[in-house]
Design a protein around this nucleic acid. Structure first.
Lengths: 297, 297
DNA sequence: GATTGACTGTGCGTTATTGCGCTTATCGCA
DNA sequence: TGCGATAAGCGCAATAACGCACAGTCAATC
């Protein structure tokens, strides 16, 4: 390790620049004795004189002049860095990393597109994965989570969209098998269930509890795979109300129930929550979500 | 002022590089609590988070990554600077500034030429002036002084060449006016004296004391002007034995006397005396001076 | 040539920074 | 599920860095 005390370099820099210990002390906001001690320490470590001392001040030697130029460039670079970091909090530039459940991609994409149009300097990363991305590792700025309110420490959580799930079937399926009248009497109708033994999604948990095993002929481990199965006529399956709203390919068999619903949460890390980038995005997203269909109780 | 504590930047740099507070503390040779305090202080000053804290360590934010790259370059530059400064003491490069009396230029120049040939990397500045250059201001590395031993503090003084002065006249002058037999009976012979009221040079002081005013028809304020005057036939004047040795234009009228002689001193500043550059030059010069004419007592 | 002002240098008391020990939390592994 | 390893965080005591006051030096100026 070359210099193990950058502050001493900074002190020597000011002395070399100003030519006097007193002047450097004034600029640095310390006592001139401190400046002398820093210089002595630095010269001792380097084994070379940086300054010639005389009653009128300190004159840099060749080594001192060399330090002057290097430290000047360091000073400039650090000043620029400070400006960048201080300004970054208020800038809508760089990356904005958002993570959510894969199923929300169709719902969120239009909002993200509109947000990017408003802030072209911003690059948006939209991450979906089986594993939960960790905000505390800096993997994302904003997470959209479902289910019970996340209670990670250092995470700022706020209520977001209340998502309604209903049971749908394709028009083909209905033409072939008709539609069940009640959920208590499903007859031979086939349902699309979860591949998990203990499904995390509330609607899948409900399905496992209320629909007999024999009526479940197709199982998925991700809800995103359910809709294509429904469209393919594999059975009656869950989908969100916002996805099926007015598309002509499916019909709602049973309307949303409170116990099927899923609450979405907006989650940010406390360190990033206050930044303009995150705040602007959250405000935009909440405003956008008012246009989404609302469940009637 | 952007950063007023470069040490905290250095700490943050190691944390960003290694990813953990503990690792950075180990590298820096401080306690990990100190590292945490540095980071907290730095973030507070910048008003932005540099790291995301979690149980596995510290992950740099965008600002932290920015700092990492800037500080990495700073670290490299300071390391190179340290190597340059540490090595400079042993290098024969850069400048070597020598100051002396103007009259010594003809004597020293051949030595300086030979020295530069041995060390082509070295640029030699040879300064002569009325005023005395001050070593303690870094104006020169080596000074060649005459007269009484200099007793400036912080100056390293060593005996150098013992310079002999004699009285010379040009062949023209001798042809016209002949030559005096003794210094006690100078008759109408003209001498070249000093323009100063109290001459500092010992031979001029002697001249003022022993030669009547009426025999001094030409006065100079610098000894360098004396030899051209002698050559021009203005009178009998002092010159150094090394200058007149075997040139055919002048003849020695009176041989050197101990009271005319002048001791030369090699003077260096204590801060620079130990450097290889100065030491090598001093050794070379002393060796070279052994070839100069020696006074017989 | 005495005086004034600016600067360096040093001993001493104080403050602030640091190190230490302990606690808490997380992860990996059996 | 429990245990060991690793890392952050925090209060308290020790130490090192700091500011202060005064001495000493030099240069300029009237």
């Amino acid at each position: 390790m070359a210099f193990n005390d950058w502050d001493e370099v900074r002190t020597a820099f000011q002395v070399a620049r100003l030519g006097t210990v007193s002047g450097a002390a004034q600029v640095l906001g310390v006592h001139h004795a401190t400046v002398i001690r820093h210089i002595d320490s630095l010269e001792g470590k380097l084994g070379a004189k940086l300054f010639q001392r005389h009653a009128r001040g300190y004159t840099p030697t060749e080594a001192g002049l060399d330090l002057l130029t290097v430290a000047q460039s360091t000073d400039d670079q650090l000043a620029q860095l400070a400006n960048r970091i201080r300004g970054r909090g208020n800038e809508m530039t760089g990356e904005l990393i958002i993570t959510s459940l894969a199923i929300l991609a169709p719902l969120l994409s239009p909002a993200l597109a509109a947000f990017r149009e408003e802030h072209p300097e911003l690059t948006i990363k939209f991450l979906t994965d089986e594993r939960v991305f960790r905000l505390e590792y800096g993997e994302a700025h904003v997470a959209i989570r479902a289910g019970n309110p996340p209670d990670q420490p250092d995470n700022v959580v706020q209520k977001f969209y209340h998502q309604g799930f209903a049971l749908y079937a394709s028009k083909d399926y209905i033409a072939k098998h008709g539609r069940p009248d009640t959920l208590e009497e499903v007859g031979d109708h086939m349902f699309i269930g979860s591949a998990e033994d203990v499904p995390r999604a509330p609607f899948f948990a409900w399905l496992k509890k209320h629909i007999p095993e024999r009526n479940i002929g197709y199982r998925v481990n991700q809800i995103t795979a359910a809709r294509p199965a429904v469209l393919a006529g594999l059975g009656i399956g869950f989908s969100t109300t916002w996805a099926e709203g007015d598309c002509g390919e499916t019909e709602m068999i049973f309307p949303p129930r409170p116990e099927w619903n899923s609450q979405l949460w907006l989650v940010t890390h406390v360190d990033l929550h206050r930044t303009a980038k995150v705040q602007t995005f959250l405000a935009f997203l909440k405003d956008w979500s008012t246009r989404w269909p609302v469940l009637e109780d």
